[in-house]
Amino acid sequence: MKTFTYERASTPAEAAAASARTPGAKFLAGGTNLLDLMKLEIEAPQHIIDIGKIGLNKIESTPTGGLRIGALVSNTNLAAHPIVRRDYGLLARALLAGASGQLRNKATTAGNLLQRTRCPYFYDTNQLCNKRVPGSGCAAIAGFSRQLGIIGTSTSCIATYPGDMAVAMRALDATVETVKANGAKRTLSLDQLYRLPGQTPHLETTLEKNELITTVVLPPPVGGVHIYHKVRDRSSYAFALVSVGAILKKDGTGRVAVGGIAPRPWRIESAEPLLPSGAKAFTAQLLKGARPTKENEFKLALVERTLAAVLNEAKH
């Protein structure tokens, strides 16, 4: 880990401003992803701005019946919140399927959204990785790619966004509110937040360098059955091979976002009218243009079958 200077910010605006003031600064929320990467010098900020106590740890209802979630709300507190459990079951389920009890206590809402890929070559600094060192090459494409992406990937990077919570948030049409160093605020959808890799896989989000996520906003709840089915080799404490987050109505309509297969939570709204026709038809549309490797081809079938399981479960 490279040496860095450290400060504690006390308000969101101060944090954003401090970040603009200091070159190579980075926000530290829970630290469960950033410190992991710093130990390996995959990240090497020169200055850390601890945002743990900037007061963004509240969950509040919005006037329109939605929910505002502070960027620093822990995964545990978000999953345990009574309104989330009652009205946004999908979100609670996705959170509870992620990481471990200890990590969820520390992990924050914004930090979780911004966690980086778990591609094993990205994690090993001896290996070629375009995301870590732009232009160096990608060892994963011809290497061990079982966990990696099948769609939305590019010839320079096939890494996935590994998280669970964001899959639920994508299905729930969550938006992200930010503040920049100059005080300017904006709102982004998750598809606007996450970039696809193209030839610049090191650019993962559209956030500007000193832009701070302050809040995640959930629109009013969508009724229906909420299911999050995460498929992995061991039963817990593992990232998804594939996960399906779905909200399904009695008439068979609904929304579906999929994790573990793409550089961002994968949802194609235009495919959703096909949901009543069943998993096969919907998945064909959802995964149109997929380019799996030989090692992760099985994910095509796995998405369809996991969705079939979810549809089946929703009926019961």
Binding site: P120, D124, A139, A142, D233, R234, S236, Y237
Partner: peptide, 21 residues
């Protein structure tokens, strides 16, 4: 990884061992 010549999943997240569940 038969090209690079190493065990790729060389940590406890990549190499899964059974957990309580």
């Amino acid at each position: 990884d038969k090209q690079v010549g190493f065990f790729v999943n060389h940590d406890l997240a990549g190499y899964e061992v059974p957990v309580h569940a």
